[in-house]
Design a protein around this nucleic acid. Sequence first.
DNA 1: AGCTAATCCTA
DNA 2: GTAGGATTAGCTA
Length: 983
Amino acid sequence: MKKDDHLFLIDGSGFIFRAFHALPPLTRKSDGLPVGAVSGFCNMLWKLLTSARDTSVGVTPTHLAVIFDFSSQTFRKKIYPDYKAHRPPPPEDLVPQFSLIREATRAFNLPCIEIEGYEADDIIATYAQMAVEAGGDATIISSDKDLMQLVGSNVHMYDGMKDRQIGVPEVIEKWGVPPEKMIDLQALTGDSVDNVPGVPGIGPKTAATLLEEFGDLDNLLENAETIKQKKRRENIIANRELVLVSRKLVTLKRDCPVELPLDALVLEEQDGPKLVSFLKAMEFNSLTRRVAEATGAEAAEIEPASVNAEWGEKAHGPDLDPGEAVSSEGEKPAPDSEASGPAALAAARAARFAAVPIDRSSYETIRDLETLEDWISAARDKGLCAFDTETTSLDAMQAELVGFSLALYDEDQSDAAKAIRAAYVPLAHKAGQDDLLGGGLADGQVDFDKALAALKGLLEDEGVLKIAQNLKYDYLVMLRHGVTVKNFDDTMLISYALDSGMGNHGMDALSERWLGHQPIPYKEVAGSGRNMVTFDYVDIDKATAYAAEDADVTLRLWLVLKPRLAAEHVATVYERLERPLLPVLSRMEERGISVDRQILSRLSGELAQKAARLEDEIYELAGEKFNIGSPKQLGDILFGKMGLPGGKKTKSGQWSTAVQVLDDLAAQDIPLPSKIVEWRQTTKLKSTYTDALPGYIHPQTKRVHTSYSLAATTTGRLASSEPNLQNIPVRTAEGRKIRTAFIANPGHKLLSADYSQIELRVLAHVADIAQLKQAFADGIDIHAMTASEMFGVPVEGMPGEVRRRAKAINFGIIYGISAFGLANQLGIERSEASDYIKRYFERFPGINDYMEDTKAQARDKGYVETIFGRRIHYPEIKSSNHQVRSFNERAAINAPIQGSAADVIRRAMIRIEPELAAAGLGEKAQMLLQVHDELIFEVEDEAVDEATKLIVDVMENAAMPAVSMAVPLQVDARAAHNWDEAH
DNA sequence: AGCTAATCCTA
DNA sequence: GTAGGATTAGCTA
């Protein structure tokens, strides 16, 4: 470096923060990655490189470097441990931009300098000093006052955002002291942001006055007694030592051990294609164009660079209660040799395990207790293992244990192909399918009871993390064998917390998605259809390949997915809303509910008679016999043969025979359609409920055990199946009779507790609607209030029809209202429905804001969130297909409402059992069913009052303390012998 | 036997 | 207009 050379030193770290706060937020269009600061940075760099002379800097750089902070661990921490101690974590949207800005720097072909243990400011000071000593000039691109001490005749600063040069006069103007006294001034005033102590009562003005009077800090401290103002004198004397520490803290180090000499900072030619590639990846279109033009690069032919954004590693859900805050209990930290940071770790592992094919031939079959015990002690040694059961049935309540598999991970094994070993332990395989004698066990299996005892030791060991896929199944199977799994992770639930809305979370789909591997289909092992055999008849070698693979894949999935929980800030959702619910649901399923066979059988008979009578009448009216249950045949009869009006076609071109169509016809006094509607209702009740339910009564327990799915819905709701007990009829008197068959045991009652209007309450809370909040606080009729607001009708003496319309609109809002849907629901013209919606938005403008904000979030981030931080993704929200897009928008509007309500009841369910147990009611009141906003318990008669009180209390306070809702939650509860009367 | 469409039950 | 599951018919393999 020589005279007239000019070094530009860009304070990269400072720039990031300033640009982030000063510039409007900007996200990358394609994926919502926040890039505002990166954009500002690139624009500024480009300007400095191409036209610095035209700015108030007025010179063109010959040398340039971008300087960053390495970490917060600097020598200043050693001098003063509290230095920068109370810094809040950077804003979430800023975190990924740190690494992007470094990438940007490299794309610009500029040296990117950081030194461990030093702040950017020290490195800048060092290089500025070096430049001056070499006879050149330096300009620091920053406006940070901490750097002003460096300003001198050959060192300037430049505020890129205000296009303002900062020299000696500017420093004096701003601070009242020349640059060389800035250190003393900062020492006196301190800095609350960096937690640098100062003298109380002394700010920049006083400090400047004092320094003017005494010359410098040393002289001031020596002659402090002579200060006239009493308070000021005392404060300075009292804080003498601290001020000296502060001076050390604010003094920049001008002799950092820099690696690159000045000559290495010489500005090079821009690499056009490289820079364009990066800018394209960032989707900075106008800058891309300008750069391409200036460098002669062909933008159209350049591929966007692959840019990895690193998100921060702190998991922080919105859940605030410190008492609840749990992290990984007893779980060994995941080995971290591949990369640092959970996002990078997840990516590295995905790459690592997707690249290594699964080797089924490496799986072991464990045939003796000693080997099993070796594996179990290895699992204890590692602190984690994957686990999977093989059984005779998909129904966990009927399943017999046939064997189980384990997979272990060796974190120190650098060869990924050898890092995982998996084995299958056959326990109850039969000797052979064709063995007419039957019942004989195959040779070479571990004794069932001994193996189970060994397994129990492992599964109940809090010190070993058990990893499974869809653990609720295995948990229930093991529960029935007297084993309670402790300390577990479920890859299905992890995937659900991470990627709800991005496809299903079954093992095959996850394996395909993350490992690029297709596991052996079950039917290849056990056959399908009539040839299907239960797993105990599967050949042990085949079973080993299948079962060990399941454990192997599960373990790999865990390695890939688990780090993402923290990286993507949904660890709290998983740990608080998913994982703890699993044992709760297993117990509910195990308990089941009593169903009275006689009642169902009698109902079935009545329905059969009624259906038969209706069939006769229908054939009579139609003039021929046909299959009434066939929409195709029915449509042909109604609209073809009989030529009835109002025929609509379904998607596939068939005549629609949906109930609305039939009702329209019935309204025209055509008798056949109403008979058909009645017949359908009757046969529906019979086939789906009275006929099917008895088939679900468990042979041993004599109760019906539904199965809840934790990861079937996108919103966080549960789903019930086999049988679905969440759609038992309630709306019609006839349908309700089915509920009378759900009964409590003798000496017990069924207790039903349900949230009143929970979704509208959630809406009032999230959209912050004053009238709704007030109405709920006052406990008034919410639909009547809405009607009154909209139509100006007083609540007293309001016609039923007016309230009905308001109610439909309220529900419509929750469902992401459309004029089309509302018109359908109310049977009015679309234009009239539009007017209603318009009027609603006028009366409740906050609702419209909520809807627009929610859609915008779905577009920007790709997901929406519940009040507890659950995310629901809408990858198709930007579809160019209007139908698809609109559907996604409505779903996105509904999801936070439905999902928050689902989260509330999940929280209640997780808390209720421990609370009951603490009250001594653990045996007397048992939770059996969940129906979205309702919980059903079986309670001993004399415990009903106490249990009701406790349950209502837990449910009403379930959002607390994580979220303090702006409206009260209300729970209504009733106990009776059967579900109909209790509801 | 396995799949989709249509229908209807729930919150 | 949101979120599900079960049943039936009727098609394809």
